[in-house]
Amino acid sequence: MTRFEPDRGLTGRMVATMFLLGLLYVAFMAVLIAVGTQAIVVAVIAVGFLLAQYFLSDRIALFAMHGREVSPQEAPELHGVIDRLSALADMPKPRVAIADSDVPNAFATGRNQKNAVVCVTTGLLRRLEPEELEGVLAHELSHVAHRDVAVMTIASFLGVLAGLITRFTLYSGLGRSRNQNGPPIGLIILLVSGIVYAVSFLLTRLLSRYRELAADRAGALLTQRPSALASALTKVTGDIARIPTRDLRANQAFNAFFFVPALSRASIASLFATHPPLDRRLEQLARISAELGRR
């Protein structure tokens, strides 16, 4: 347990999403077994990917982002902020890392509080004031406290499985095979896999956007400074817009982990984004500020 305020909305959405994904998984496997495919082989491979991502997410993320763990002697101010926030939240202090990147951002990863790591970029450290950095780090610690990384890893499993089965079907030639006196097996598999992937994608993206709002709220309430987090959001989003697109694309694969997405689109594509729009995040923080002012 931590002192982060419980979020019943987040808990309810996590439970509902997992329930729906579980039902979808059972139906998906039932169809695959009914048409007599070798889906079990692909499922085993997918489970292997899931376990690797679940247990090695912290190492994989740091390696991919070129982040390195730093000691209190190397980054005393950063460690000091995380020390204070961890004590305030009554949670174990995560490992601390820095990624050498001008893209201002931060992320938390690790399957639980004992294996968590919080990483910030050098670009973020150069741009934010101490109170703004505290707001960002409180947001990331909320992800750790709510085990968001583990939840999203498990939630994404069905989409990964559907994608692998689709590729297996296309590359194995199964898509051109037919049951004797029956419909094409491959087309059935491709159709079902596509539907499963689309539905699981939408469910996980909806959950991802809500967990970002929940982390904003929990971080703001922990620090009692929603305005500092709002200032950090505004500053980071504005500065990211000035980063060369090619540099942002190199980081786009990690959008789900980031405090602010590396690339975002102000169009219908935003409906499928990992993060809610900036305006919605700022509106929530303004409401929290008003609530705190009335207490």
Rank of each mutant, 00 (worst) to 15 (best):
237 T>D: 02
152 M>C: 07
164 L>R: 04
262 A>D: 11
67 G>F: 01
212 E>H: 12
39 A>Q: 04
212 E>T: 10
211 R>Q: 15
63 F>I: 09
155 A>I: 14
196 V>P: 04
288 I>Q: 11
199 V>E: 03
70 V>I: 14
205 R>N: 14
182 G>A: 05
166 T>F: 09
176 R>W: 06
171 Y>N: 05
160 V>N: 14
203 L>N: 06
6 P>R: 09
12 G>P: 02
6 P>C: 06
182 G>V: 09
234 T>K: 13
204 T>S: 12
121 T>G: 03
16 A>R: 08
221 L>P: 04
84 R>K: 10
139 H>R: 03
246 R>D: 14
95 R>S: 06
100 D>K: 14
58 D>R: 14
49 F>R: 08
158 L>T: 05
201 F>Q: 13
195 I>Y: 07
159 G>Y: 00
154 I>P: 00
125 L>S: 07
114 K>S: 11
129 E>G: 12
223 T>A: 14
283 E>C: 05
229 L>M: 06
53 Q>Y: 13
212 E>R: 15
15 V>S: 10
38 Q>V: 05
187 L>D: 08
258 F>A: 06
141 L>M: 10
69 E>L: 15
143 H>W: 01
157 F>V: 09
123 G>R: 10
251 N>W: 11
232 A>H: 08
73 Q>R: 13
205 R>P: 01
294 R>A: 14
266 A>L: 12
39 A>R: 01
82 I>C: 02
111 R>T: 02
145 A>G: 01
117 V>I: 12
110 G>E: 04
196 V>H: 07
172 S>G: 07
145 A>S: 13
